[in-house]
Design a protein around this nucleic acid. Structure first.
Lengths: 145, 145
DNA sequence: ACTACATCGTTGGTATCACCAATGGATCGG
DNA sequence: CCGATCCATTGGTGATACCAACGATGTAGT
């Protein structure tokens, strides 16, 4: 009983979106322990890898809308993880950069997210994980063209 | 430029959730042409495959919260796609069933969703699609245990 | 130089999905 | 018969993903 209709369970779009729900839940739980959420991690990750950036740049790198970047940075700066400074070369822009506490938070969230991968991929062996990752990466690149 | 941080792009949870965004967008566009959304399709699909059911049953089969089932059925019944009738054998329950128009809408949405699968899986060959589907199905079953 | 256009941050929305708590009516176990 | 449970419903919340519009600023065309 409580069977899922085959119309759903046989379709890749269903498998993908439903599994994403579980992935999102696992990640959210990990982030919540550090008082963060997905958008915060994206911003911190982009700053940690590419260095200080404008908010539009962050939006592009994180696949986030500009308005959502504003809110995320507000929250991150309230907690002292990032700093906003006016760009002297272009006064329309803000330059957002990581603080020391921000680096620390990023490392913390990194660890939490690593644990999530294992939970998510659960019963899959190393070769299967690689296959899945590769297929997903190809598809994502195709759709993000 | 506009590169995605490797912390994100290298993680299966990121690939999965981001690809799910694309899948959801494609499906939503398909559904929108018929004036529907995901929850509506789930309910129609469950009714079409398993026949009339109570709302709790529908919630279990569609992975939906009871309160969301209420709202979806309200909208579906306003459009004449489903009917609510009291269960004579248990007056706590409603028996929800498909109308003729509901069957037709289900077929319509089925076609739209089939087209979505092709768009979603884009560049993948048949064997790759099967591999991906199989891996996703195994993981989903694991998490839905 | 002046005008038209584009860009950036910001505000203030909307939709979808997922989930939770509480209520009142109905049913069932003991 | 009474307490526990089940069901539908109401009324919320949070996260993600969007969109439109505004003012300030910068750039390009003429």
């Amino acid at each position: 009983m409580a069977e899922t209709p085959e119309r759903l369970s046989a379709r890749p779009s269903w498998l993908l979106t439903q599994l994403a729900v579980h992935a999102h839940r696992l990640a959210s739980e990990g982030f919540a322990e550090a008082g963060a959420r997905g958008y915060h991690y994206r911003i911190l990750a982009a700053l940690g890898e590419f260095g200080p950036a404008s908010q539009v740049q962050l939006g592009r790198r994180c696949t986030m809308d500009r308005s959502d970047v504003v809110a995320a940075i507000n929250e991150l700066s309230e907690r002292g993880f990032v700093e906003r400074a006016p760009d002297p070369g272009d006064r329309r822009r803000n330059i957002v950069s990581l603080t020391a506490a921000g680096h620390q938070q990023l490392r913390r969230l990194d660890e939490a997210l690593d644990a999530v991968q294992d939970q998510l991929l659960g019963p899959l062996g190393a070769a299967e994980r690689a296959t899945l990752t590769h297929l997903l990466a190809r598809l994502l690149e195709h759709h993000a063209r």
